[in-house]
Structures are given as C-alpha cells and as structure tokens.
Nucleic acid binder design. Structure first.
Lengths: 154, 154
DNA sequence: CACAATTAGATTGCGTGCAATGCTTTTGGC
DNA sequence: GCCAAAAGCATTGCACGCAATCTAATTGTG
C-alpha cells in the first residue's frame, strides 16, 4: 500500500461512516413523512413490521431483531401501547418476560400501510440488483464492526 | 417487472433502510469507543474534522456540511465550548452570524487523535475499492432521498 | 432446600436529531 | 428612511439510543 493509498484510506473510511450516517438520517426523514398520517416513528414502524411477520414477541426478541435494548424499547412500547397498537403482558410461566402482541388495531395497520414500502422504494431510486448489493455490503460491514466492538469490550 | 420482483422489491427496500440504520448505529458505537478517551461523541468529532480541514466556520456552514440544524448544533457547540475545544463569537459586521473557531486545545487534538481514522478503518474491514463504491452508492441514494423529501415538503 | 449467579425489563441520565417557535439582525422594495 | 421579508441562531419539546443501575424472577450449584 502506497502512502497515497494510506491517506486516501483514512479520508475514505471517515467518508464511509458519514455517508451511512447521512443516508440513515435521510431515509428516516422519508419515513417520518410517510408515517406521519399514523403518528408513528421509524423505530415504531420497525416494531410493527417485526410483529406483523413474526407474531407476538418478547421484548428481548424484539431487541435482538432490531439491535435495540430495553432502555430504548421500554418507553417506545409504552407509547405504542398507549396508542392502542399493541399490548404488553407479563408471562405467567416466566415472570421476567413481557410478551408484546398486536391489538386488532395494530393488525389492521398492516393493510392500511401496505403502500409504505413501495413509496419508500421510489424515494430511494435504487434498482433491484443495486439494492441487493448494498444490503449485502452493509450487513457484512455491520457484522465486522459489531464483532470489533464486542472484542474491544471484553 | 414480475409479481415476485415487485414483492421482493418491497422487502428489499425495507431491508436496505434497516441495513443503513443498523450500520450507522454500529459505526457510531465504534466511534463511541474510540472517542471515549477524549469524552467526545461522533457528531462532536464531525465538527472537529470540519474545523480542522476548513478552518473557522459559521454555525450555518457547519450545519450545511453535516446536514444538522441549529437545534442540534447550538447545544452541541455549547458543550464543546464548555470543554475548551472551541469558541463561539458573534460577528461584528453581521450580528446574526456566530463564527465557530478551534482553541489551541481543539487544534492540538488533531495530532492527538491522528490514529482514530485508521483504527476505525480496521473495524470496518472494507477494502479501498469497495469503500469507494459504497460511498458513491450511499451519496447517490442520500441525494435522491433528500430531493424526494424536499419535493414532498413543497 | 439455600443461595449465588444469571436473565428480563424498567428506570435514570445524557446527548443527539428535528419540528416548531421566538428573537435579533440584515436585506430588499418602495 | 421605512418596513415587511428573510436570514442566522437559540430555545423548547419530544422521541430516540445507549450506558449504568435497579428490581424481580428464574436457574444453576452445592
């Protein structure tokens, strides 16, 4: 690796981080607009998508899927509960576990909001093969970074 | 486009958003660890990088570069000011503008923190051509989404 | 069975992000 | 010069994200 490569690396690595940071905020912004009619935020929508596809889940399972901890999920789920979208019930057989389940209203949202993914896809303007490739790259990068974070924590 | 393509599109578009969201949080987490010795957050580090490379900037110029508004930057800059990293001075010739400039301490951090980008690059495990391609893809996507957001706002 | 260790959630505290609003200063139209 | 419009920033309010801590319940070990 030449000295030029080495210095371009540094700049590019920081640009890559910033690009992901900026892209994530821009798409969250798009979601904010699309979800506004239902008064939902993007992470709340993610919870909905998980419950639609997987059925009732514990807070821990939700957190594993979305990479969010109880410090984020507890108040978020409380708000969605207050909005009548889901219920939280402590399990009988294991009093530590709280199971999150959609209400009829939460289930009904699946049809009401069926056009959201397509609308969002239009906003991004990425064709199918490119989207596949980006998802693959981002996943690999996320896995690598998470492993580095875990290794450094121990 | 077949029906299968159409349904894969929807899923993939949502996966792409989530991938960016997850990747952004994972890298921010890596930065959190690397910046901990200096008590800095990732957006604070971004402000530092901007001021290192471009010199004193107004709050507006910083906000344009980082896509952050005064609601985020004002308290952030206040904290960095309190930490002795930078100063905020209202301009004489235009009383609306506040110019942000690094202190000697803020400038000194450039050398102290010179290894941060390389450390972060290692965490991500992406080679140079792949990083270039990802930055390009993410930029284009961000631009497209931002244009869609602006168009919908008007 | 007793009891330490573990697990699942909730809570607290702090720093973003961002919409909405307010204030001050400057600019542009007349 | 006057005054409405615009620009630049600060503040408020709310919802994340996440570290740290706490509580309650369960599990594992002897």
């Amino acid at each position: 690796m030449t000295a030029d490569d080495s210095s371009e690396r540094r700049v590019l690595d920081e640009m890559l981080c910033f690009s992901m940071y900026a892209a994530s905020r821009a798409t969250t912004q798009a979601y904010r607009r699309l979800l506004q009619p239902w008064g939902l935020t993007y992470p709340q929508y993610l919870v909905l998508v998980e419950l639609w596809s997987r059925g009732p889940l514990s807070v821990r399972e939700l957190g594993d899927d979305l990479a969010l901890d109880s410090g984020t999920l507890s108040p978020l789920l409380r708000r969605m509960d207050a909005a009548g979208i889901l219920t939280r019930r402590r399990e009988q057989n294991d009093g530590r576990v709280v199971t999150v389940a959609l209400t009829a209203r939460g289930l009904a949202l699946r049809n009401e909001m069926s056009s959201v993914p397509a609308e969002l896809g239009r906003c991004m303007g990425v064709d199918l093969p490119a989207a596949r490739a980006m998802v693959e790259d981002l996943r690999r990068l996320t896995d690598t970074v998470n492993r580095a974070n875990l290794a450094a924590a121990s």
